[in-house]
Amino acid sequence: MGVTTEVPGRARGFGTGSGSIIDVREVSKSFSVGQNRLNVFSGFNYRIPEGRFLSIVGPSGCGKSTLLKMIAGLDNPTSGEILFHGTPVTAPPKGMIYVFQQYTKSILPWRTVLQNIQFGLGSRKKLPAREAREKCMEYMHLVGLQGYESYYPYQLSGGMQQRVVIARALICEPEVLLMDEPFSAVDAMTRAILQELILKIWERIAITILFVTHDVDEAVFLSDHIISLSRAPATLREDVAIDLAYPRDQIETRGHHRFTIYRQRLFSSIFLQEKEGLTQV
């Protein structure tokens, strides 16, 4: 391959104890497809240290989203366990928020922008009304929604709706943000802007981000670490640390020669599998 980056992960054995926030242990997951059972994961292991921006890539149908859903507690593994701060995840844990790919279905259309963000404050109702409003305004400012507080979602563009969803997730100050192809349904320019936004947020607040995407360029641009999964049952094909300096820049970073090398390495790994999958069918 000629890529000189080290491949850490399990090989380097980080997270042996206090460092890892999420610990995926011997996780298996199978679905019944008609008469057959499809094993999406079979004894999958991975540890994610705190503060990481980890992207998960892989061929379509490899179980990227399933893995994310299981970590979020929205779906249960068939066997094995997922630990969050050492505690097994059985229901959606406090401290983790899942951001759905279909933001139009995840936004609450009957609530204004401000009320949608307020939804994220949730059980912290003890917060006095004025303080709650101020906090909402702060997060609206963070995602660039100031002035839109009384708009209903139908009056906003897709990119703006996704900002609302992100602000709603951030306001409850999660330790982990789980994002499932969050920018795949918006146009290219909006996507570039949202990518910068999410990086700005990640650099500013202490948060771990798990980011599922089918877009290798996006993964390389955003992450400090990328794992690439194989087709089902998913195994770890690549575990790459991305050695590109932050803050990243849409034009400069993407023009860096290492960006191209990472991109090519990951892309070819996925592309070859996609092709294999097609010839098998």
């Binding site: 507690g73 929205l74 959606p92 406090k94 759905f100 609450l108 994220g120």
Partner: peptide
């Protein structure tokens, strides 16, 4: 699921 992830 949106409600669930917010733990309501």
């Amino acid at each position: 699921d949106t409600g669930r992830t917010f733990g309501i």
